[in-house]
Design a protein around this nucleic acid. Structure first.
Lengths: 339, 339
DNA sequence: TAAATCTATGCAATCGTTCCCGGCTAGCTT
DNA sequence: AAGCTAGCCGGGAACGATTGCATAGATTTA
């Protein structure tokens, strides 16, 4: 079943050699116009398509890039993926998407699977659980091109595309402060993630600017990025059990933001009466939420595009690249006040 | 850069032939235990991994399956993809996801790209725009295994996994009727999609059972599945411009349901005062919406799993398969009343 | 003791494609 | 007329892995 035609088939049918057929199809100058015409017409007729696997073997590249994200069911990542695809397909590259579900083990397995399947490069956003990136290091040292986006590994020298997390976090916290909140908690993903560190920093800076004290008890981490309901629930409960209950929460991630709203609803904690909330999210439908959630939005699509462009440039570079850039894109605060 | 080691490298280093090395690694009985040990240890040391591309060329299969959905940023599809991955990876298959964004052209391009990249099989959910499936037909005739899920092509003989759309639609409509609605509109995707036809049928049956008249003006199609805001907006506006305004809308899809809520909000049409709404959706956070949306939920994860199992069975079958099944899974009505 | 069997290994073809190299036949130059 | 070049084409190696067959030496058997 399903036996695609090969060069050899054409050669046999036309009484030519495979090399002639190959050259005719690739439009080399050393094939006579008549032969070319015959070959092209026959190839068209039997709908010949070169076998990409054979090509990959010969060219030692697969024209495909691997993408590692925590999950596609995340507004930020699904938008970033659209950006990635838009560039990749226009440049003739395949996109293979894998999900870590915030698990280090799955991340490692997926990436090694991709690398051994000969993807030409990797677009990586680390999982929440990942703190050890040595396996990535070794792939990188062996010359596999990779570009990080969103959640980057600081100890690997390559291109990185991130949002201005500090400023985004600053603005979100400032927004809460200007609404009159005094005790602002911070719910975030795992502590070693680059985005967690940067967003925490922005949060701290806003507190400092407005003369509010920083209280470590107000910072709650979710090592699994809120993949389990219980994780988020515990964090919220701990916050609400504090002697000095927070009057606001700034949330550092897309999944976490929505997860936190669910928890608050289930715990019958009302927004904004009992507590104010704002967070990072790229969801388009936050307006529909009750109450609407003011959010920090990242330029996900553009981040995906830029990361892919840089990756393809790395892949197609004739010489090893040693100059790497960290591109920082601005976020935007989407104010949704329940007036 | 990045030159993985090959059988030849090992053979040369150890003074053996590639065939011996190959056999030693595959643990054939005809290699002496000592040789095996030496080869295995050396392979381990240099971290040898067989080149999957060379293997694909030889075995004439790639151990990868292609998935075609409208978009991953859709709760139904992202859950289905998780189901697909869970089975595929456990069976050693790669998953390549492509998005059509409801466009026929992109669907065709993606599928032909996948087929020419030698995926071993296809998991297909048709785009809203697709009515001509002849290009799929021809691939199928040439022997490429494929399984449809959710949005199926009736004229292609293969396995199909769908939800009980008729019953789901019936229950949703019935729910609206029991709430007292008399003029129930139906907002749906493009008319030729299998799910549209089945859901319309369930809607009609509910109307009939409860003695309500069927009015064609109350049925609005979105040929692009609501990919553009304007498309949904126009449909809703047309409904609300009718002489006998509907007092409820039953919506036939995930994206459409959420899109419709956004439109209603922007048009300042209030739920449930001005109109009642219910629809198909697999979103986990509908509870957070204002007002909450009662929805029909499909067993997306299971559908993905079953489709993948059947596809792999097709792929690995030694003989051509002519007996195909249509598996129908039950939906569940998630009642969310704003009491 | 010679033949048969067995063990351990190497050779070479194969998958589909590209490309280097070399050969042949014109036609052109001197 | 002999040599040269250009145009056109085929042969075969290579990419990395598997595998049927051949073959070497060692061992067993009649």
């Amino acid at each position: 079943m399903f036996e695609p035609s090969t060069l050899k088939d054409i050669a046999k049918a036309l009484g030519l050699s495979t090399s002639t057929v190959s050259r005719a199809l690739r439009d080399t100058h050393e094939i006579s116009p008549e032969t070319k015409k015959i070959v092209l017409e026959y190839a068209e007729k039997i709908n010949y398509r070169p076998n990409p696997i054979a090509l990959s073997l010969k060219e030692r590249r697969s024209k495909s890039i691997g993408v590692i994200v925590s999950e596609v069911a995340n507004h930020y990542f699904s938008q970033a993926i659209n950006g990635i695809e838009s560039i990749a397909y226009s440049r003739g590259y395949h996109v293979i998407i894998t999900q870590t579900h915030e698990s280090y083990e799955r991340e490692k397995a997926n990436i090694q699977h991709l690398a051994s399947r000969s993807v030409d490069g990797l677009l990586v956003s680390l999982s929440a659980e990942t703190s050890d990136t040595s396996y990535l290091q070794s792939l990188h040292k062996r010359g596999l091109p990779m570009v990080f986006f969103d959640r980057v590994a600081d100890d690997i020298e390559t291109h990185k595309i991130i949002a201005n997390n500090e400023k985004g976090a600053f603005e979100a916290t400032e927004y809460l402060i200007k609404k009159g909140c005094k005790r602002i908690a911070h719910l975030t993903s795992s502590a070693h993630l680059s985005i967690s560190i940067e967003r925490l920093e922005g949060y701290k800076q806003a507190l400092e600017k407005y003369g509010l004290p920083f209280n470590q008890d107000y910072v709650k981490y979710c090592p699994h990025g809120g993949m389990f309901y219980e994780e988020t629930e515990t964090a919220v409960k701990e916050l609400m059990a504090l002697e000095e209950k927070p009057d606001a929460i700034f949330i550092a991630g897309d999944r976490l933001s929505i997860g936190c709203l669910v928890v608050l609803k289930n715990l019958k904690i009302n927004i904004p009466e009992d507590i104010n909330v704002t967070g990072f999210s790229n969801s388009d439908v936050l307006d529909l939420f009750n109450p609407p959630l003011t959010s920090v939005r990242q330029p996900a699509f553009e981040m995906g595009q830029i990361a892919t462009e840089k990756l393809i440039k790395l892949i197609e570079s004739k010489y090893p690249v040693y100059e790497f850039e960290k591109e920082v894109l601005e976020t935007s605060l989407q104010v949704r006040d329940d007036l």
